[in-house]
């Protein structure tokens, strides 16, 4: 079985690299082959440029894609991300991707609740776009930006796919109401509000801060609890700190609502070979890189 849809290697040129919130960077890269294949919830395994002493790649969710490019948002938490943040636009990074099983909402989803904590917000934006469907003008707007993909490193084979529209077009869903809850510690760490507002609408977006400096004072899980009581939510997608995911999973289970979580594990290979990234599930150890990172919440043994 030689699938052509699996992860591939691509040398990507950095198109934009800017600080968007406290310690949080937006990294847009020209990577036509990977961008054309990304599904919501998948990630790329990025080799830190210019740092051969850091031998392992770093996994980052794909936040957004467009023709020929993809974007990751990342927070500086250690040596690798600190080094990455000093790489200038025009530089190149070596990507492996797209990797993993992304979000798979039930086909009859009518009202979805996306819950992101901190950088766990990142893998939810493509999902929001996909669920909200093509009739949301901003979604298509995002996809038809005028960025031209960098062609320097791409072979002609990958270029052809770069010119084709990204496969976000067949919306899996339409007419799904999407609500999002984005939680950050404090207002200085907030990002993505405008993006999500444009896709889900202001009325369907709640921002929470732990310190009350913006939006609603409190935790995302408080909001989830309320929403589960009030509305006919039939799908929850959650990514963030593990205690938060666990709590959301419990709330969803109690309410009988389908719930998926995206789990973070340390990863060496990112291809399913090394078994460093395993998650304990009711079906035994699963590799979070290729069997996940998105898992059905009831399967996970927390």
């Amino acid at each position: 079985m030689m699938s052509l849809s699996g992860p591939r290697l691509e040398t990507a040129t950095i198109l934009e690299h800017e600080l968007i919130a406290r310690q949080t960077w937006r990294l847009r890269m020209a990577a036509p082959a990977i961008a054309a294949a990304v599904e919501p919830g998948q990630f790329v395994h990025l080799r830190l440029p210019g740092r051969p002493d850091h031998i392992l790649r770093r996994p980052f969710s794909v936040y957004d894609v467009g023709p020929g490019w993809l974007e990751c948002l990342y927070q500086v938490v250690g040596a690798g991300t600190a080094a990455l943040s000093t790489t200038a636009s025009g530089g190149s990074v070596d990507l492996l991707g797209p990797i993993g099983h992304g979000w798979q909402p039930p086909h009859d989803t009518r009202r979805a609740l996306l819950v992101g904590g901190g950088l766990g917000i990142a893998p939810l934006y493509l999902l929001a776009q996909r669920l909200a469907g093509p009739d949301v003008s901003v979604t298509t707007g995002t996809l038809s930006t005028t960025d031209t993909p960098s062609t320097s490193d791409a072979s002609s084979a990958t270029l052809t796919s770069a010119l084709a529209p990204p496969p976000l077009s067949p919306a899996w869903f339409s007419g799904v109401t999407v609500e999002a809850v984005l939680g950050v510690q404090t207002v200085a760490a907030l990002f993505g509000e405008a993006d999500f507002t444009a896709v889900v609408g202001a009325a369907n977006l709640t921002v929470t801060t732990d310190d009350g400096s913006y939006g609603r004072h409190g935790l995302t899980t408080d909001v989830v609890q309320e929403r589960l009581v009030e509305l006919g939510i039939d799908y929850i997608a959650c990514c963030g700190p593990e205690p938060m995911q666990r709590r959301v999973a419990e709330l969803a289970a109690a309410a009988g609502v389908a719930c998926q979580v995206s789990l973070e594990r340390r990863m060496a290979c990112g291809l399913g070979a090394c078994l460093t990234c395993v998650v304990e599930t009711h079906a035994g150890w699963r590799r979070s890189c290729v069997d996940g990172p998105v898992f059905a919440a009831p399967e996970v043994i927390w």
Partner: peptide, 19 residues
Amino acid sequence: FAAGRPYADLWSQTATTGS
């Protein structure tokens, strides 16, 4: 390298795209 499968796909793809 597991039993090879994770890399077979990627190497094969490299052979196809000539990348």
